[in-house]
């Protein structure tokens, strides 16, 4: 691309500066996980491994992590299913109100979380009489996660066209076989990208969770929320965040690899 040398330098500079801005506070988080001061006093008066040891021992944290993984997995599965179905319907068929479907799917993420949260909790509580629990958290998260899968699949379907599927049908494959052998493999990376984003959205969600989590259901963000405001526990929270930053690279990297390899489709 024929950009001037200055333009290139400015753009690279902006990228580097932006990444620096993103990572400085994260560095503070990591540093604070070793900070001897319980309330993140700055500059740190000393360094300690106590918080890492405390986090390692904390069964509450491990339970919360497991709850979060369950909630995010459940929400992601539902989102994958609903998002793919909706994307197929919108991309492969024309019908009355097709534009409205897009709007409907975007709505849960476009409306502030507190609105979605109180609307759902009100419905569970007073309208349906469903006791709040892990199930209601999954329902709440799935609602705003559908959109990520939907958009990824929609973009992929648009790029693919229908000719390959038609060829498959012409060669005698029925609807299911075509989906299994032709359509699905081509969509795999889009599903992965959408699913990963859905998982991440659910994993760090706190506002909708606050209103839909039932007795004893403590996702990691809720655990962090509770502990951040407990004087003896705040530094442990930094440990968890620091560990998550490091661990998160694995799923993202894997997904990137698969997406990268699959992008030849």
């Amino acid at each position: 691309m024929n950009l001037s040398r200055t333009a290139r330098a400015v753009l690279w500079g902006a990228l580097a500066a932006g990444l620096a801005v993103i990572y400085v506070p994260l560095a503070v988080v990591v540093l604070n996980s070793f900070n001897a001061d319980r309330t993140f006093g700055w500059p740190p008066p000393g360094f300690t491994l106590d918080w890492w040891a405390a986090a390692w021992r904390s069964t509450g944290m491990r339970e919360a992590l497991w709850t979060s993984v369950q909630a995010a997995s459940g929400a992601t599965l539902i989102a994958l299913l609903l998002g793919t179905m909706a994307a197929f319907a919108v991309q492969r068929y024309s019908f009355f109100g097709r534009d409205t479907v897009s709007l409907l799917i975007v709505l849960p993420i476009a409306l502030p979380g507190i609105v979605t949260g109180i609307a759902l909790s009100n419905t569970f509580h007073t309208v349906l009489g469903i006791p709040l629990g892990l199930f209601t958290v999954i329902v709440g998260h799935a609602t705003f996660c559908v959109v990520t899968v939907y958009n990824n699949v929609l973009a992929r379907l648009r790029r693919l066209g229908v000719s390959i599927e038609e060829a498959s049908a012409d060669l005698g494959a029925d609807t299911f076989t075509t989906f299994r052998l032709v359509t699905f493999p081509m969509m795999r990376s889009a599903l992965l990208a959408g699913g990963l984003l859905a998982f991440a959205l659910s994993f760090d969600e706190i506002i909708v969770t606050t209103f839909t989590a039932g007795a004893g259901v403590r996702t990691l963000p809720i655990w962090i929320f509770e502990n951040l405001f407990r004087p003896n526990q705040a530094p442990v929270v930094n440990v968890v965040a620091a560990a998550l930053i490091v661990l998160s690279v694995i799923p993202i990297w894997l997904a990137q690899r698969i997406t990268g390899e699959a992008s030849r489709y």
Binding site: L26, A241, I245
Partner: peptide, 15 residues
């Protein structure tokens, strides 16, 4: 892309 996505996993509250 990984570099941009990573901070999403560090808790919102902690950030």
């Amino acid at each position: 892309v990984i570099a941009v996505l990573t901070p999403l996993w560090a808790s919102y509250l902690v950030k």
